[in-house]
Each structure stands twice: as structure tokens, then as C-alpha cells.
Design a binder for these strands. Structure first.
Lengths: 149, 149
DNA sequence: CAGGTAAGTAACAGTTTCGGTTACAAATGT
DNA sequence: ACATTTGTAACCGAAACTGTTACTTACCTG
């Protein structure tokens, strides 16, 4: 879940920016600095999650399936996760004891991380794609004056 | 940071359990279900962080450098991290634009994750190795009656 | 002093994961 | 038809991690 979430968020912000206009994977890849196929892979995941819609053929591309204010970063995060259920694996140690430390360790650590993960999810749920796009726009205006995206 | 933190925590709990008695890497590896050298690697990291002390030679082994109540899981977590500063990398996208979305995206995402990460650290800091060991002991008693560790 | 024990560490193999790339089929507008 | 763009499979190379072997160093004991 390292770069995928970042790139997916990048894509979502871009789609929110060009509201209604379908964007090609080439353009998105150019903006995110990766390969179009990688973008299409991520778009496939986002599409499965119901966050975007795509149109094939000439003049096609991808656009948001819902208004950006109705999509939270948690939605994006979850979409990226469900493709590969890493969430926040504490790590399986596979200890060989029948009932020794190891078996219980897993449960205990999960119990420990649970609240922390929930806090993170809450923070992500509080931000919509629209808000993110607005934040980015504002930061862009701050940092340099000639903006293009 | 997948299995290392789990195994390191396992080790710390074991060391807390056998208070004062040095434990060999063979025993620790047997309990954690891994190879002694792996354990020694982790112990090296923990030792660098000042959490454990080791004694070479016959009758040697490793023991906690501080009372288990004075070691938090955050200490362990940090020790494992500093060996490889992953903490919670949001992912570097390396977008090729001079001042486009990408540059600002990094900062914005970090700003978003910051509070969530802090919440996680707070949760980890609130639990000491002594508490963990006690929790494990209790769970062991619950789950099965014949305990050995 | 000799020998055994155990840590410290380097080096290497096997696996897995991930990102990038190529290639090709399917769909869609002009 | 034809160009464009998605959808998807397949493969490569790099990176990371775990496990393992091997060897050196240190320390205790008889």
C-alpha cells in the first residue's frame, strides 16, 4: 500500500479537477509520473469499488462516478486495500507452539493496533476528494504562481 | 515492518517473563518459530536501541536492559523502524512535473496521515512490555490451562 | 590452558512483492 | 475503415525479507 494509495489519490484529485471531462490514462500517467498501464490497473480497482466510470474508444477516458464531495479518502484507501488485504497486518510469526506465546501474541497485537487503525480511518473519512482537490489547489497557488493542473 | 515488530515484541515479552535470567537466541528462536540468527539480528537492533543487553560465552544470553515496566511498545516499534526508516511512508510518487499536483500531493498526504500516525504512536506508548507480558499471561490462562512460557 | 558455549556478523539462496513495460484484444467515436 | 483508448494478461528487473550456512570473537569452566 505504499505508492498505490498515493497514486490513486493523485488520480482522484485530477479527476475531480477536470470535472465531467473524461481523462485518458495517458494524461493521468503523465501527471502522476508513472506508466499508463499502471494507471489503468489502479483505475480498474477504483472502478470495481464504484468510485470511477470509464469509457472506451476515441475521446474516452475515466471520470468520477460520484460528485467529489461524496467520495472520502477512506473510500479510496479501502478500495486500494481490498485489492490486497494488507490493511495493517501486524505480521504473522507462525510460532510452532501449540498454545505458547505466539498464538496469543497475534491476537494481543491486533487488539493493540485496532484503536490506532480506527483513528487513522476516521482521519481519512473526514476528508473528501473535493476537499483534497481544494487543498491542493490552494497549496499550488501558495508555492508557485504559474499553475497548470 | 511486517514480521520484525511482531517477533521483536515476542522476544521482549519472553525476556520480561524470565526476569533477570539471560536467554539464548536458540531458545528465543524456538519460541518465536524462526531461526536463531534472525533473532540475533533483531537483538542487535534492540541492543543498539538500548533495550536489551547481551552476554557472550557459556551461560550467556540476552536480558532486558531496563525493567519491563519502563519499556513501552513504542520503544520497540521505534527501534525496529530506525533500522529502516519506513515509519509510515505515504509513498513517493516522483511525479515529473515541476510544480504540478505531485509535489504538493506528498505534503498534503503527509499532513493527512500525521495525526493518524501520532494516534498510533500514542496507543503504542501507552503499553509497557510488562503490561504486554501480563496480558499474554492472562490470555494464555484463558485459552488453555497447561502453559509453558 | 583447553574446550565448549553462545553472541556477532558477513554472505548467500529462495521467495515474494511491486512497478514498469510490452503486447494484444475489445470497444467506440469519426 | 480507422484511429483512439480502455481492459488485461504476461513478463522482466529491482528491492526487500526470511532463512540458512559459515566463520570469528568472547567468555565461562574444568
Amino acid at each position: 500500500m505504499n505508492t498505490r494509495f498515493a497514486v490513486a489519490t493523485h488520480i482522484m484529485a485530477y479527476l475531480a479537477h477536470s470535472a465531467g471531462q473524461p481523462v485518458s490514462s495517458d494524461v493521468l500517467a503523465g501527471s502522476a509520473g508513472t506508466h499508463p498501464v499502471v494507471v489503468r490497473r489502479l483505475l480498474g480497482t477504483l472502478r470495481t469499488a464504484g468510485l470511477v466510470r470509464s469509457q472506451r474508444g476515441a475521446g474516452g477516458g475515466t471520470l468520477l462516478a460520484r460528485p467529489p464531495a461524496a467520495i472520502s479518502l477512506l473510500d479510496v484507501y479501502r478500495a486500494m486495500q481490498q485489492a490486497e488485504p494488507d490493511l495493517f497486518q501486524v505480521g504473522s510469526t507462525t510460532p510452532n507452539h501449540k498454545c505458547d506465546l505466539g498464538r496469543v501474541m497475534q491476537l494481543t497485537l491486533e487488539g493493540l493496533f485496532g484503536p490506532a487503525i480506527e483513528a487513522m480511518c476516521t482521519a481519512l473519512a473526514a476528508v473528501s476528494v473535493a476537499q483534497l482537490q481544494q487543498q491542493l489547489h490552494q497549496r499550488l497557488a501558495d508555492c508557485c504562481s504559474q499553475s497548470s493542473a
